[in-house]
Computed example of a mutant assay.
Amino acid sequence: MKVKEVAELFDISIRTLHHYDQIGLLTPKEVTDSRYRLYSEENLETLQQILFFRELGFTLKEIKKMMDSPSFDRKEAFTLQRKMLIEKRNKLDKMIEHIDKTLKHISGEIHLTNKERFEGMNMKLNQYEEEARCRWGNHSIDDMNLKLSRLSNEEQRDVSARWDRIFHHLASLRNLPTQSKEVQSAIKEWYDFLNENFSHYSLDAFYGLGQLYMQDERFTKNIDRYGKGLASFMCEAMKVFTNHHKRGHNDENHH
């Protein structure tokens, strides 16, 4: 398809398509001698995903980084985008419901407390957006491997040894409750290790990474080599760790 046809099909401007080409986000399959851009079926699928990501609030820079990742999977992305859109729809439905209640409150039909008036207005990043950023963004497996490759042989050995030690220790604690002091201490060591050796992991990113341990077969398979069920155990322990530290942070702010 020519650029004009693609622009009409997706209801976007030709200028937008030219811009996507210029930044390397969407390169046409072919450019004719007359400089006509020709888009393939695969190009159209890629554009569809770009527009979904845009609708979900990702910047072009973030989208390019995710789609350029060696681990990016088209089908996985569509599945994840569907989950994100459903969550967005549910959030919008709740907000519409709250507007309806607020209008009734204003007209005197019902009385709402302040808590009732403003609950449901949480604009927090949803878990699927965090997952996308984790899976194909700054905290991807490939990013970790790249940083490891930049270390000297001795540094790589030290990091690998500590990595193994942490996972063997966690595997030995699998029969304990995930909220126990021993397990949470070991999970904190993993959190500190990631932050010291790779890049800054917020509590949300750490939680998202834990979710990936169960959702991404590569993670599950590699982690369970240290002990059957370890990936699931760590996922739950990381969730407990995140919730506990978030509560602590909120309590500090409250005081």
Rank of each mutant, 00 (worst) to 15 (best):
178 T>C: 12
181 K>D: 14
242 T>G: 00
173 L>N: 12
181 K>V: 13
221 K>M: 10
230 L>C: 09
204 D>K: 11
194 L>W: 06
225 R>W: 02
126 N>L: 03
175 N>I: 09
162 R>Q: 05
134 C>F: 06
134 C>V: 12
221 K>N: 11
229 G>V: 01
165 R>T: 13
138 N>V: 08
164 D>M: 01
222 N>P: 09
120 G>K: 15
225 R>D: 07
220 T>C: 03
188 K>G: 14
199 S>V: 13
182 E>T: 05
122 N>Y: 13
225 R>K: 12
224 D>V: 04
188 K>I: 04
210 G>K: 03
154 E>S: 14
128 Y>Q: 11
182 E>L: 14
180 S>H: 05
203 L>Q: 04
205 A>D: 08
219 F>E: 08
178 T>S: 11
161 A>H: 08
192 D>Q: 14
127 Q>P: 10
204 D>I: 12
197 N>R: 05
172 S>V: 14
123 M>E: 11
152 S>R: 10
119 E>L: 15
159 V>W: 02
177 P>W: 01
135 R>Q: 09
211 Q>F: 04
203 L>E: 06
158 D>L: 15
170 L>V: 00
166 I>P: 13
218 R>Y: 06
161 A>Q: 08
155 E>H: 07
202 S>Q: 08
180 S>V: 02
217 E>R: 11
209 L>D: 01
200 H>D: 05
122 N>E: 15
177 P>L: 06
155 E>T: 02
124 K>A: 06
179 Q>P: 01
211 Q>D: 08
193 F>T: 06
132 A>L: 08
136 W>E: 02
218 R>G: 06
123 M>I: 13
132 A>Q: 03
160 S>C: 02
144 M>N: 01
157 R>C: 00
160 S>N: 08
217 E>T: 11
228 K>T: 04
146 L>V: 12
123 M>H: 10
178 T>A: 05
133 R>I: 04
185 S>P: 07
181 K>S: 12
119 E>D: 15
123 M>A: 13
238 M>Y: 02
238 M>W: 00
128 Y>H: 15
235 C>P: 02
137 G>A: 03
240 V>L: 00
185 S>M: 15
127 Q>A: 13
239 K>H: 11
241 F>V: 03
237 A>P: 06
167 F>T: 01
220 T>M: 09
184 Q>M: 13
240 V>N: 05
191 Y>T: 04
219 F>S: 02
242 T>P: 01
233 F>L: 00
126 N>F: 09
144 M>P: 00
235 C>S: 14
194 L>P: 03
227 G>A: 13
236 E>K: 04
238 M>L: 09
143 D>Y: 11
132 A>E: 03
162 R>I: 01
131 E>H: 07
138 N>Q: 15
195 N>L: 05
165 R>L: 14
140 S>H: 07
133 R>M: 09
156 Q>R: 15
168 H>F: 14
178 T>H: 07
147 K>A: 01
172 S>T: 08
183 V>A: 03
124 K>V: 07
194 L>S: 13
225 R>N: 07
191 Y>W: 15
125 L>N: 07
224 D>G: 12
222 N>G: 07
209 L>M: 11
155 E>M: 05
163 W>R: 10
205 A>N: 08
179 Q>T: 10
127 Q>K: 15
156 Q>G: 05
229 G>P: 03
141 I>C: 02
222 N>E: 13
150 R>M: 09
155 E>A: 14
148 L>I: 02
190 W>D: 09
239 K>G: 11
216 D>L: 10
191 Y>S: 11
202 S>L: 08
195 N>C: 04
239 K>A: 12
